[in-house]
Design a protein around this nucleic acid. Structure first.
Lengths: 246, 246
DNA sequence: AGGCATTTGTGCGTATGTATT
DNA sequence: GAATACATACGCACAAATGCC
């Protein structure tokens, strides 16, 4: 019932997916509820090896720990790696964490991207600068195909963070990108806001090309501020519509 | 030779550890070198299950992917989860990534912590504020026991990020904390700088207590700027000393 | 303290599907 | 199309650690 065994393929991944969803949805209190191999074997109808490998995958993400005789328990949320792409998928899928995540990410981006833009103005390679302009062109040229346009939007911000030359920021880029792409429906909903903000990307790219950190920072800050306002406004309208739940 | 089988315990973890170290050390080119189960079985003298579970753990960290017929390959570094505590251990242990990581983290902290302080000034609970002051007291009171003092230093910054109320920032806190603790030797080396900067922590806590975001931001920025200068200076002196290798 | 049951950790054999050659 | 190589999966058995009585 809880799982459609997904006929033949990748039982292990399926177990990882189902358990991951449950954990981020808060269905299992950290430290309290214990999962036993035998229970999982029974529930998923899988072999012990498959179950163990699934648990190891989750353990690799710091989601769970296993101990002899005590079974496997969920680790406290502050140990979770929130920036893992699969984790983001699970959080997006879960209604209770969805909104908070988008807000948190928006806040994080407002902190990070202006500074990344300033660093990029100092460090970006000519190739990276060209890619920024290409992303802008693709964004601006595909406003009739929102999915494609949002794809290039995400790519723009990804390149921007990469151009900062800081590996930790690049690491964040993957998460930002993932979230933007996954939520492109959210942004296409704010259609007029999205299109209005496209030129901002060009201005940022120009400031980086001209090696002007202050200007790049300010323009990135402007874009993200407008972006946050759009998201907040859209979420308010969505909340009004979203009354029904099963 | 490459591995001391670590007598009884956790062959799987041992395999994870050895492979993780190799990967972050860049010994295996992403996408090119392939690891085959049989090779790993031979090298570690472990069973297929142990090897498979170790690989799954690494896959959970997005370090590797497995494909039929092609074996397991290393993913490109931009896919790695740099904030994973174990990853940080591996990177600290590796000389080639060590310095770059500390520099990148220092840069990231300069971006994030001032804003986190500003947010904390708006959102911190009274309990969190008390903990900030407690951390300062412990820092200032244990200058004769550097390890302890640095422990509370790390705790201070951890609480600060947590008090920002943003789960993504809290996620970063774990990595920052890990790095500070692991590198406490580095900071105790910069003894005079470390002690000189202790009062800054009190001033930050006071600004947060007084709910003054601008002041908290500015004071955090001051601390981190001084901190970076100390680290840079120390690394220069360390470089001069660090000629010998085995 | 000692012994027993439970649960994870480990090893081995084997079958099957799938992608490459 | 056949052979090959590898990942995926199952099942069983024993070892080791832990909790309970």
């Amino acid at each position: 019932m809880t799982n459609a065994p997904k006929p033949g393929h990748n039982i292990t991944q399926h177990i990882v997916d189902v358990l991951g969803r449950r954990i981020v949805a808060g269905e299992m209190a950290p430290g309290k509820t214990f999962l036993f191999e035998q229970d999982l074997i029974d529930e998923f109808g899988a072999s012990r090896n498959a179950v163990r490998e699934a648990v190891k995958t989750l353990a690799g993400k710091n989601l769970v720990v296993s101990a002899r005789k005590k079974g496997t328990s969920v680790r406290p949320p502050e140990d979770w790696n929130l920036l893992d792409p699969q984790m983001i998928d699970w959080m997006i899928a879960d209604k209770s964490t969805n909104k908070g995540l988008i807000k948190a990410l928006s806040e994080l981006r407002q902190i990070i991207e202006p500074e990344a833009a300033a660093l990029a103005a100092q460090r970006a390679t000519s190739t990276q600068i060209l890619r920024l302009f290409e992303c802008y062109e693709q964004m601006a040229g595909n406003t009739r195909n929102m999915e494609k346009s949002v794809h290039w939007d995400a790519e723009f911000h990804s390149v921007l963070l990469e151009a900062s030359g800081n590996p930790l920021l690049r690491s964040l880029a993957k998460a930002v990108e993932k979230l933007l792409r996954s939520n492109f429906a959210l942004f296409t909903g704010a259609n007029q806001g999205y299109i209005r903000n496209i030129p901002d990307h060009l201005w940022i790219a120009e400031a980086i090309r001209d090696r002007d950190p202050e200007l790049a920072r300010q323009r990135a800050r402007d874009l993200l501020t407008k972006n946050e306002r759009d998201i907040e406004e859209l979420q308010r309208t969505l909340d009004e519509v979203a009354l029904p739940e099963t």
